[in-house]
Nucleic acid binder design. Sequence first.
DNA 1: AATTTCATATCGCCG
DNA 2: CGGCGATGTGAAATT
Lengths: 268, 268
Amino acid sequence: MKPLVFTHPPLQVAELLLREAFSKRKLIVMFCRCSVVYEGRSATILGEGDRLVIVKPDGAVLVHRPRGYSPVNWQPDSQLLEAKLEGDVLLVRSLRAKPRELLEIRVSRVDTLIVAEEMVDNAEFQELIDEAEIRDTLARHPELIEPGLRIVTVEKRIEGRGYADIYGVDSQGRHVVIEVKRVTAGREAVEQLRRYVDAWRKENPQAPVRGILVAPSITEPAAKLLEEYGLEFRKLDLKRIRKILEEERKGKKQPSLLSFVKKGGSAG
Amino acid sequence: MKPLVFTHPPLQVAELLLREAFSKRKLIVMFCRCSVVYEGRSATILGEGDRLVIVKPDGAVLVHRPRGYSPVNWQPDSQLLEAKLEGDVLLVRSLRAKPRELLEIRVSRVDTLIVAEEMVDNAEFQELIDEAEIRDTLARHPELIEPGLRIVTVEKRIEGRGYADIYGVDSQGRHVVIEVKRVTAGREAVEQLRRYVDAWRKENPQAPVRGILVAPSITEPAAKLLEEYGLEFRKLDLKRIRKILEEERKGKKQPSLLSFVKKGGSAG
DNA sequence: AATTTCATATCGCCG
DNA sequence: CGGCGATGTGAAATT
């Protein structure tokens, strides 16, 4: 990768560089003074200031202020990218089709313009533990939820209501709908579970059904709501899940995290 | 703003530059080849590739791949920033205290390192329309929801159940609970409204109450659910809201969007 | 500090 | 493409 760096280019030069870079789909980083207008799902205006502007090969645009994680303005991707000199301002316009969103950056001064030539990045990104993995591990080890639980379906689609994480039958033959949360469960998780249990009841009016919310913890208001709805909470032991996953992975002889990183592993 | 640019600095030089920049709280942009490990709320690994790394004065860290809006790894802010040469790898470590999260970037090659000196950005960011604004506009113009509707409360707190956006009385004296959504309403919005209506019924068992969901559109399954619950949908005309807001603002002689931008307006 | 809610959420999956 | 749910969601407001 050899980024080309231009220091204090006149706006006319920047205009040409941006146009070239847009058409060749290069990644651009620009330190500049600018104001921004956004019009689309919302509408915002931002007065002049020093900003870090990033344009990616796929048309993603980010305008960053000096602080914070979030860009102040952005475009997740865009179909049209323009650079046009208008008097003493370089207008950078990004248009997204669906939803229709327009981002206009008015650049009054470019401090540094960097055009990255060929970024090579084919590495695999691995999420070592996410909700799907927790859910599948619980399904493989239902005794972690309660003894005698038999799993019937994982990620069960409930007509017109969404998806229940796990669906099974308990030791007494009662049906069980299970909602799994990776983090502290709030009121919304309770509502979600209730929705699934309600839907199940509607389709099976006679049969008894239990609803279990499985999470590392639950907020106090959510616990109250859960009780009100006659649903149950089971604490999720994340460490236990991680341990099981680790052992299962070891069994598969997959490289450990450390060896992977030290070798600078990549794939794709 | 005068960003300092270093091209292909040896890792030893980059180490010193980063340390200096971290301690002086400068904004840093680095094109480099690196791998990343994150450990905290989750755990992730990312193999080697060309990346764009940003470190902001407040300790925010962003690792961007060549595509997409979202950074592949990040730190919203961090309390500790380190750069340490370890053999042929420059280890950049970012630690966040609460929640405890560690981000480690292993840099094997620095292509370009930019240290921004003094970014001046005091401009005001204006959100011209958000949900609160829509809700308040509807409350000022209840006829947009239905004729004869009288507003009693805006943003009414419903004990242990969150907030109903608007609460009022219709032309026939029936109580009305209104939930406003800025975007397409899904099942969740329906459940939210139902929760508010249920809570209201519980406190007023006799009195009849209606529930109205106001949104630009509604998903088909959500519409079914709404009907099932005996609730109502009213289409929200966002353009109309914007127009009203614009006129009201004009009345207050606030500068228009265009004039604001042309003048390069700023504040703060 | 804990909890809730909003966001131009973004993103990926599945029908 | 629409609907749905997870996200290391982030960030603000409120209790």
